[in-house]
Structures are given as structure tokens and as C-alpha cells.
Design a binder for these strands. Structure first.
Lengths: 74, 74
DNA sequence: ATGTGACTGATAGTCCGTT
DNA sequence: AAACGGACTATCAGTCACA
């Protein structure tokens, strides 16, 4: 379970970073548009912390994908 | 965004309840095995609150699905 | 067996920086 | 641009009594 959490969180980190790069967004831009803190986006991309569903939704909207796609391995 | 969050959260609630029923588990049983509180499972199934990734992982493991499946509309 | 409100400790998430 | 830290606040995680 802790294993699953770590895996999921890493996939999440990869996907967010990949999607963000695709969209030519900086962490700062993404954070601004998603209305979350700049340092928190950084944390999520480093697979640190434990983001809530709300934050994941906010990010997915800005990244232009459905939430579940954030969990799909690339 | 708030709309997306509400939608996602409702899908989540439906899926968890459906999967739980499939597995013949009570909220209590699911809660016990996933190591979260019974009333918290109740809250999630009622689409109240804002569960963290960790909690979602815990539940998905017990329900025998990948996390992303929790976000797939049935 | 579940829904609900109230309550608190833990931590998610922010805001200020420096490297 | 991004990683990282410290201090702070909002809210989630988790428990309880009760219907």
C-alpha cells in the first residue's frame, strides 16, 4: 500500500511535468493558473507530499486533461 | 474547476460504493482493511470532503483496482 | 450498517526567502 | 527557471456520540 502510494505519486510527478513541458508552461505559470502555490507544484513534481483531490483537479484542468490521465503511465 | 472537482468527486463516490458492493464489503470492513475511519469512508461515498492521494491509494488497494480506475465513470 | 455534527491533532498548502 | 528551507495558516485525517 505504501508501495502503491509511492508508485502512484511518482507516475503523477512524471505526468505533470511532461504535460507541463508539452504546454510550454513553467512551474510558476502552472501554479498561477491552477491557483496553487508555486513551491507546491515543485513538491508534487518531486513526488514529495500528499496532494488532495482538489489540487489534482485544479492541475488537470490547466493541463487540459482528465484527472484520471494523471495516473496513466506515459 | 470547482465544477470539475464536484464531478470527479461524485464519480469517485459512485465507484467506491459500487466496487465495495461488488466485493460484498460493508463500509466498516472496507475502512478496517484500508486503515481509515468508517465515518470517513461514509463521507467519501457521500462526495463530501477532499480526500488525499494517500487515502485514495489505500482504498483502491483494498478494492483491488488501480487508483485511476476510481476515476473512470462506470 | 450507515449518516451526521462536532471536535482536535496532524499535515496539506501558502508565503517569505536563498541558492 | 527550479530546488529548497522556515514559519505560518487552512484544512484534512481521524475519532466520538448519537440517530
Amino acid at each position: 500500500m505504501a508501495r502503491s502510494f509511492d508508485q502512484v505519486r511518482k507516475i503523477l510527478a512524471q505526468n505533470i511535468r511532461a504535460l507541463r513541458d508539452e504546454g510550454q508552461l513553467s512551474q510558476e505559470e502552472l501554479a498561477l493558473r491552477a491557483d496553487v502555490d508555486r513551491t507546491y507544484v515543485s513538491q508534487i513534481e518531486r513526488a514529495i507530499g500528499n496532494p488532495s483531490l482538489l489540487v489534482l483537479c485544479k492541475l488537470s484542468v490547466v493541463l487540459g486533461v482528465d484527472v484520471k490521465q494523471l495516473f496513466d503511465p506515459i
